[in-house]
Amino acid sequence: MAGDDAAGGPPTRPDERLLNLVIALVNTSAAMTKQQVRSGVHGYDGAPSTEAFERMFERDKDTLRALGVPIVTVEGSGHSEDVGYRIDNEAYALPPVDLTPAELGVVALAAQLWSDKTLRTDMSRAMTKLAAAGAADAAGDAVAGLTPRLRAAGDAYGPLLEAVSERRVATFRYRAANTGQVRTRTVEPWRIAARGGGWYVVGHDRDRDATRVFRLSRIDGRVRVGAEAGAFTIPDRVDVDAALGAGVGSERTAVLAVVPERAPALRARAVQTDGPVPRAPQGRDVVTVPFRSLTAQADEVAGYGVAVLVLAPDELRAEVRRRLTAAAALDGGAHGTAGRDG
């Protein structure tokens, strides 16, 4: 970890400098100016120049705010024109939570859900704060034998969460599912959602002037977050599943042509259909299964290879064929292309 290049003596560690800043701002009677921080708070005295101090102090304020420390700005008055800083002691404290050991056990287990390092860090910090509030030993009995896990959200999560939380506009390059074209999108993000192994952001697309859903894995490069906070309002009720629409969430049925004796796991989920059943291709059974996630259903069917074909819907067949076409090229097209487009 980088030191602070103090001219004399060992540099103060950043965590210890931050601690002294919190103590100073909690105890200050009115507020402290930057100059008072620089000359008074342990750890800042070593800054080699005013610019270096300003950078350090700005970064530290950001760090503390991200951790939930409510630093407020006080306009200069009377003797001084300078802006002052203090910690809002009313807003500082965690309200009483009073988790039972069984509930704390549930929270500890839920912490294992996340795969992303940043989310795990957020979670472990939350656990430290609950421990500070006196949460007792966790009891795992209520959820014994359970482990929830979720696929990583990736790099877009951090900036998008900041954008949703502070109602800032997000801009990113996005690869459209159907055309593969990459375009810059400008979005007022409302919710980040995970469904069926995929991560999405739901919001208002400013260019389309409509509600749109974007898959995080199709975001190309960085998400840029707008400078203006409170740039839009989030609707009172955001129905993520409705926004995801037919793609994910609502239940549909897949009509599959399955080789006899194969795919009993699929057959076990088979349902009767009211409508006319398509005629089975030769040497296959028609099996109808309900599904919610197009991606997950396409993954499953593609995994069976020739044993399971999609008769309907077209969208599912297209997704399966996209996987198969890519797989058919994996040996460098040594045998030419057997699959025909159509």
């Binding site: 500082y92 404290a93 500070a132 969460l161």
Partner: peptide, 20 residues
């Protein structure tokens, strides 16, 4: 007094419990 949860921490905690 114990420090309140930051936005990111609250989100990670509540979303994980809702998912569970």
């Amino acid at each position: 007094r114990p420090l309140r949860l930051g936005t990111r921490e609250a989100v990670a905690l509540v979303a994980a419990l809702r998912a569970m």
